[in-house]
Write a protein that binds this DNA or RNA. Structure first.
Length: 404
DNA sequence: TCTGGGGTCCTAGGACCC
DNA sequence: TCTGGGGTCCTAGGACCC
């Protein structure tokens, strides 16, 4: 038997993606500190992205509150996010990658894996291919990226973090002891603050410590995750680059932090209806139906609770999803709850074909009505049509959000 | 550092069926 | 009447990522 051929996988990571998109769209922003953030007037304004001109010299970081960012870098240009532009840029970048290999898997809006194992003979050495990709993205899209190259997705991903912005790093299996193992264990993909804490108790401080820790103990303490993280620390990952992940979504949800804490059932109801409208609109746009509705409430202590219910039939009809959410609220509502944020998610998704069995007239009418509304929203913007119950102070809230 | 919004995967326990 | 065990679905919660 022939030895298994080593795969060559890259992770393309757009640098400061949101900020870079604005700089590409508006040349006057280039070489300036640009900060993309939520509405600073609202209490939940945080930094979503910052250009390198803001990051390095001023210490601006993603997640920082806008007021803190303003203090650190008063001269920065603060911009509200424009998700449509980000999606547009992201799609164009994926198209460029597909010119190199059909095996492209978008990992997030600003990252994608590409498996170029089969293209080496045709396109040249991996580093050269990476340079060409970087050049194409810079020339055609106008933004920089960092590329990580490795024998699997994990090492490609870790490699991409080695040098930012505009980096190009190769991480081979032989590099693991020198380059991977000295890093703090928190840097390993999959290790968050919780595992970091657990590991500290076991005297695991670096990725190398984890790699050499007895597997049996990790398995016993952390189950499957213990095993996966141990493999990761040793640079092992068998997951393939899967282009099909492109269309495959598992849930559609929206969440909103309220302008102030709400405490009345009726106040929350309005928000839930608005969220139902949003997620059903999205579901209809991709011809998806969901069977499970989950309602998440975050209270003034930042405690998050979620409750779910399964509908008799999968649906993307606003009123059905809204009614399901209301049922959850009625069952679980705490009288004294002070709600900071509300989220609604549709999951257990299937495509529209499973819908054919429904011949109930009212449902068909509702469906037609909602489709007509969707068409108007597509034409005139999301705020063009509202239900009467939405026309409260929050109606205005969404309107402003939509127009920014 | 007073904390947004979009997701994914895993686990445990209970209900229910055969 | 009491009992076994496997399988599947559902819900709640935890952890992680960008």
């Amino acid at each position: 038997m022939l030895p298994m051929k080593q795969k060559i996988i890259m992770l393309i990571d757009m640098n400061s993606f949101f900020a870079s998109v604005h700089q590409a769209l508006d040349p006057s922003l280039q070489h300036k500190p640009v900060i993309v953030c939520g509405d600073p007037a609202k209490r939940h304004g945080i930094v979503l992205a910052a250009s390198y001109e803001a990051k390095r010299p001023y210490g601006i970081k993603t997640g920082m509150t806008v007021s803190e960012a303003r203090q650190k870098c008063p001269g920065a240009i603060f911009i509200s996010p424009q998700y449509r532009s980000y999606v547009d840029f992201s799609t164009r970048i994926l198209n460029i990658l597909q010119d190199y290999s059909p095996l492209v898997e978008p990992y997030s809006i600003d990252e994608a894996f590409i498996d170029i194992t089969g293209c080496i003979n045709l396109l040249g050495k991996p580093q050269q291919i990476a340079k060409n990709i970087k050049g194409d993205i810079a020339n055609q899209i106008g933004i920089m990226c960092s590329v990580g190259i490795g024998p699997n997705k994990l090492l490609a991903k870790m490699a991409a973090d080695f040098e930012k912005p505009d980096g190009l790093t190769v991480l081979t299996a032989e590099d693991i002891p020198d380059k991977l193992w000295p890093l703090p264990v928190r840097e390993l993909f999959g290790v968050g603050s919780r595992y970091e804490k657990h590991f500290r108790k076991l005297n695991i401080k670096t990725i190398g410590d984890l790699a050499h820790f007895p597997l049996e103990i990790l398995k016993k303490k952390f189950g499957l995750m213990g095993e996966i993280l141990h493999l990761s620390a040793n640079g092992i990952d068998y997951s393939p680059v899967e282009p099909s992940n492109m269309e495959y979504i598992k849930s559609i949800g929206n969440q909103i932090t309220l302008p102030r804490d709400y405490s009345g059932f009726d106040e929350i109801k309005v928000i839930v209806l608005e969220l139902a409208e949003q997620i059903c609109h999205r579901a209809r746009a991709v011809n998806s139906l969901g069977k499970t509705v989950s309602l998440t409430l975050k209270d003034n202590y930042f405690i998050t609770r979620s409750h779910a219910t399964t509908m008799p039939q999968p649906s993307n009809i606003t009123n059905e999803v809204y009614q399901a959410a209301l049922e959850i609220m009625k069952t679980h509502w705490g009288k004294n709850a002070r709600v900071r944020a509300v989220g609604l998610t549709l999951s257990n998704l299937t495509d529209n074909k499973s819908r054919q069995l429904r011949i109930d007239n009212d449902i068909i009418k509702q469906e037609e009505l909602e489709k007509a509304c969707d068409a108007i929203k597509t034409r005139w913007g999301y705020g063009a049509i509202k239900r009467a119950t939405s026309l409260t102070d929050l109606g205005g809230y969404y309107e402003r959000k939509e127009n920014r």
